[in-house]
Design a protein around this nucleic acid. Sequence first.
DNA 1: CATGAATGAGGTTTCATTCAT
DNA 2: GATGAATGAAACCTCATTCAT
Lengths: 212, 212, 212, 212
Amino acid sequence: MRDDKQTKKKLTDCAKKEFIEKGYMKASLRNICKNAGVTTGAMYFFFKDKEELFESVVGGPLLLLEQTIGSHFSSEQDQMAESSGILPGNLEDDYASAMEILSVLFRYKEEYLLLIGKAQGSRYEDIVDRFVASIYQHYLEMYCKMKGYSSLRNMTAEDKFVVHWMSHDQIDIFIHLLTHCKSEKEAKKQMKNMFNYMVGGWISTIRKQPIP
Amino acid sequence: MRDDKQTKKKLTDCAKKEFIEKGYMKASLRNICKNAGVTTGAMYFFFKDKEELFESVVGGPLLLLEQTIGSHFSSEQDQMAESSGILPGNLEDDYASAMEILSVLFRYKEEYLLLIGKAQGSRYEDIVDRFVASIYQHYLEMYCKMKGYSSLRNMTAEDKFVVHWMSHDQIDIFIHLLTHCKSEKEAKKQMKNMFNYMVGGWISTIRKQPIP
Amino acid sequence: MRDDKQTKKKLTDCAKKEFIEKGYMKASLRNICKNAGVTTGAMYFFFKDKEELFESVVGGPLLLLEQTIGSHFSSEQDQMAESSGILPGNLEDDYASAMEILSVLFRYKEEYLLLIGKAQGSRYEDIVDRFVASIYQHYLEMYCKMKGYSSLRNMTAEDKFVVHWMSHDQIDIFIHLLTHCKSEKEAKKQMKNMFNYMVGGWISTIRKQPIP
Amino acid sequence: MRDDKQTKKKLTDCAKKEFIEKGYMKASLRNICKNAGVTTGAMYFFFKDKEELFESVVGGPLLLLEQTIGSHFSSEQDQMAESSGILPGNLEDDYASAMEILSVLFRYKEEYLLLIGKAQGSRYEDIVDRFVASIYQHYLEMYCKMKGYSSLRNMTAEDKFVVHWMSHDQIDIFIHLLTHCKSEKEAKKQMKNMFNYMVGGWISTIRKQPIP
DNA sequence: CATGAATGAGGTTTCATTCAT
DNA sequence: GATGAATGAAACCTCATTCAT
């Protein structure tokens, strides 16, 4: 029983190491199997192909992250938060969300770094864009509210472009923290400044000028 | 003599196409040569190896870009610009610089996209980080002035971290525009909003709070 | 399973033939595989690289030879043989040893010829020198005794030079016999004269003059 | 005029260096031309092919050596020297000849080392055997005289074999000295012992026993 | 004398994948 | 579950040589 999943485990462990070292494309299945002390045939029993092996490494963490982001940034769950001050409520909420996301990110730091920077050649090579897309709708609606638009249909192409950028930037903040901070704790500390930066950007954008 | 530089030209053209299609790593020299109607041996007469062929495609544009950035963002040339308003003078200057950089970027759009997104495996795979590094000093000094510090040595690790992020973000703005805009004209139009966003971010960061 | 080790065998057989025909360097792996009716990939399943394939041909015989030489010429096992006549006992022993070595040499004649004369480019290209080195110590001690020196430290650079030459010459005798005799039997017959020649050389050298 | 042979000179110089470094086979014409600052086409104006380029390096010295050996070891020029002692006169003469040959060898040491050890793949790969063959006849006649045979036809196959070996050994002495001595002077000093060794071998062989 | 371009065959090695056992 | 063998294509690169100019 215990041996049952042991081989598979060893395989994914070695795969992870190899993918991190060399990136998806340059990673060698042979090498992975050799390090795992397993024949390539055995590997193909567990995994359909290279892609699936890669997925076995990053799939779980990716799903977790998607769900976490989804639960916080899905447009459906957006509430008309009562804004306590000048700041739009949603942005305040976002800060809390971001903290949770950071926790997740650092829980599987290696896997996410793999996904973000070493997945070229796999089906995840555009994962960052997908993350951006997944929060875009949320920010679109927030922007809409802050602008005082009555409907999403009032948004111009220019509006949408800037919202897309801001979505991208939000994701980039996460990546930057994951990439440049050693610990979750440090990331959360630095997050404050970056969030502050982002909010400043939002306000400037809404007002069409940076200065109050 | 008859063909003069025709063969070499054909080779770089086909190389460019292949690199764009498949990325540096997956690009096949054989394929490139076949498309150029040339033997691999001929290719190796002109180019030492795959890397050099790649360089022949992106090298020129890269140099141009580095010089453009260098001339606008070098810390030495920073003047104590007389600020006309609340905005620090340097940021205003940066806007003009950004416009010029955009012009360059769109002049060799394909090559820059190649460098930014498809250079994994080549010596340029970290080119974005290098760009960030190349403007970091400039922003460090600007931040210093805006903060009212007397010396760079007054900067904390936290200060540096946030400046590094802002440098990164500046580069990202360029990449975003290059990636998402069809024409230079459109990019320059969208730039305004994004620059506004960035300046808002800077001010928030300096003041340690987003709202005036 | 059906073929068991048939493929590998075929591969080494064809490799041996090719190496003998063209020498290590000019031997073509493609050609070997073609003759063996096997893809190059298959070859690389059994052998890490060209070197290892070569080793699979000469490695076994080489080891055998080294052990045979080692057991007869190791300085540790040298006994103070009671000389029955004027001839130093060790040289008499050496003759018996030489016979055994000849037996080994002719057992894998092809392989040894390969090693001796066609290994340029492989890690065995200096194998002859290594053989010389491996018996040098033995002859150094014998020379020491015959000279009546009390210690190896009494040997001059000139002494050492001549001993080195004689070691080289001993190896050369083996190579000459292997190269120029068709059978082990013939070699053993010719060996007598050559050994006689060598002993005469030794005595002349010890006495510093050839004439009694 | 001076420039005339300058290119050719440079070419042979660089060729020599490359051949010494890598051996005939691994030497790269491209590399040679590059180092000589000349195009391959130019090289092919002076030399028909790789072989001829190699010949331009070793040809001269080789001819000189062949003539030197020829003039000393040619059977025609052998005189019935009056032996002053027990030693056959010819061997005494050989010693003088050997000294002259050593002088020649050290005059073009590099070239001869090239010929002896790095010519595999060229037409000179068997040069050592050719040297042996070129002195064989001489030694055959000397052996004949020393044995007291009336005609060469009295020689058995066994006689011939041992003479061939002794011819080989004579050549080997030269090679050993060239390989292991730094200067001509040192070689000539060491030569004495080696010649002594050889003469002892000859006498033993003639008498069919090493001890007087 | 020499260039610069081009050939074409060949080199060794690596890869993801398959499949009978 | 797992092995070991094999495939076949493709990878990058180097070579000696040729030839029009």
